[in-house]
Simulated scan of single mutants.
Amino acid sequence: MKKIILLGVTLLSIAFLAACGEEEESADASGKETIRFGATAGPYSDMVTKAIAPLLEEKGYEVTNKEFTDYVQPNKALANGDLDANLFQHKIYLESFAKENNLDLSEVIIVPTAPMGIYSNTYEDIGSIEEGSTMGVPNDPTNLARALIVLEDEGLVEVDDSVDPLRASLNDITKNKKNIEFVEVEAGQLPRLVDSEDLSMVPGNYALAAGMDLLNALALEDMPDDYRNRVAVKTEDLDAQFVKDIKEVVESEEFEKIINEEFKGFGKPKWMKE
């Protein structure tokens, strides 16, 4: 009888240890229990908290989101391990910042992004723009090049086709069909120029920060994916399970539904249109 009892205890112990081992293996397979996101205050922080975090929480993660007010600290915090992922930047900025600061960061997936738009309190549509109108445009090279792509798409200017459109400047305009007078200012000031100039070209994040409705623009940018924001992580984490899960939730129908409801006017990346 004692041998039978001892055998039973032994079997129970083995079963208990096996169960513990399975739980431990499952926890390891998930990679992380908490995902620490970082995003700039505004629409992309909202995207994390309203669209990404809830779907990750359904997968069992706890998600935190730290807001930043500049474009330097989110990448530094990611690189030094204070964050697991961030969302605030386009490809050109990510690659140039990583190279200049010797950081090993990589993109995970492109997300819907607030487009640049032409706004006006003077005109109701592109066709009514008059000769000699004034227009505020960004004075930094990246956003100015984007602005010129929009103006060319709307038939207002022609740009030297021998110039890389992602690096074009006002000097590369070969035809200004309405003789628009361009007023170059810092991108963050462009919402104010909607009142002081005939038109203003406002990047989406600054338009939203100023309480503007993207759908009120005379025209919205059909931006190249290189200018759309993306989730970034440390390159060494690209194959981690938590990164695969971030990508999976962003690719889900539930994520797109939230975007359609909460982020109206945001331009979708190519992969979402296919």
Rank of each mutant, 00 (worst) to 15 (best):
T122R: 11
Y123E: 03
Y123S: 04
E124N: 14
D125R: 14
D125W: 13
D125I: 14
D125H: 13
D125N: 15
I126R: 01
I126M: 10
G127R: 04
S128P: 04
S128I: 07
S128K: 11
S128L: 04
S128Y: 05
S128N: 07
S128A: 13
S128F: 04
I129Y: 08
I129K: 05
I129F: 08
E130Q: 15
E130V: 06
E131L: 14
E131K: 14
E131R: 12
G132I: 01
G132F: 03
G132Y: 08
G132H: 01
G132C: 06
S133P: 08
S133E: 00
S133H: 00
T134F: 08
M135N: 08
G136T: 09
G136N: 02
G136Y: 05
P138G: 02
P138A: 03
N139G: 10
N139V: 14
D140W: 10
D140L: 14
D140T: 13
D140P: 10
D140E: 11
P141L: 04
P141C: 02
T142N: 09
T142L: 13
T142D: 09
T142M: 11
T142C: 06
L144I: 08
L144M: 15
L144E: 12
A145S: 14
A145E: 07
A145K: 11
R146A: 15
A147V: 00
L148G: 03
L148E: 08
L148N: 01
L148D: 01
L148V: 09
I149Q: 12
I149K: 09
I149G: 02
I149E: 06
I149N: 02
I149F: 05
V150A: 05
L151F: 15
L151K: 10
L151T: 06
L151I: 13
L151W: 13
D153C: 02
D153V: 07
D153S: 13
D153Y: 06
G155Y: 01
G155C: 05
L156Q: 04
L156R: 07
V157L: 07
V157N: 02
E158Q: 15
V159M: 04
V159G: 00
D160W: 12
D160Q: 10
D160S: 14
D160P: 11
D160R: 10
D160K: 08
D161F: 09
S162Y: 08
S162P: 01
S162I: 03
S162H: 00
V163N: 06
D164G: 12
D164V: 12
D164R: 12
D164T: 11
P165Y: 00
P165Q: 08
